[in-house]
Computed example of a mutant assay.
Amino acid sequence: MKYILATALLAICAGAWAGPAPWYQWRSKIDGTLSCAQTTLGFGWERASGPYKDSRCEKPALVK
């Protein structure tokens, strides 16, 4: 029981150090429209550029 509790606490603490997900600029395959999102917008979209720090895709993120 102690090991299960210790493992659960370790997992929670590891999540506390995680940073936010990066943002990417996505381009529509149909009409070329650009959009900024953290994950793909669906089948008809391809990643155009990124990663970015902000939701407006203006501040480039440092890639480690």
Rank of each mutant, 00 (worst) to 15 (best):
K2T: 02
K2M: 10
A6R: 12
L9F: 15
L9N: 07
L10M: 11
L10R: 02
A11N: 05
I12G: 08
C13E: 08
C13F: 13
G15P: 01
A16M: 07
W17H: 11
A18I: 05
A18W: 01
G19V: 13
P20K: 14
P20A: 15
A21L: 14
A21G: 10
A21C: 10
A21S: 15
A21D: 13
A21V: 10
P22F: 04
W23T: 01
W23A: 03
Y24V: 01
W26E: 00
R27P: 03
R27A: 11
S28T: 03
S28K: 04
S28W: 08
D31A: 06
G32H: 05
G32W: 07
T33W: 07
S35M: 15
S35Y: 08
C36T: 02
Q38R: 13
Q38N: 05
Q38H: 03
T39R: 09
T39M: 09
L41C: 03
L41F: 03
G42L: 08
G42N: 03
F43L: 05
G44Y: 10
G44M: 10
W45R: 03
R47I: 11
R47L: 05
R47N: 09
A48E: 11
S49A: 14
G50H: 03
P51K: 04
P51H: 06
P51G: 02
Y52Q: 02
Y52E: 00
D54Q: 09
D54S: 08
R56T: 13
C57H: 04
C57E: 02
C57V: 02
E58N: 15
K59T: 14
A61K: 08
L62W: 15
V63Q: 13
K64D: 14
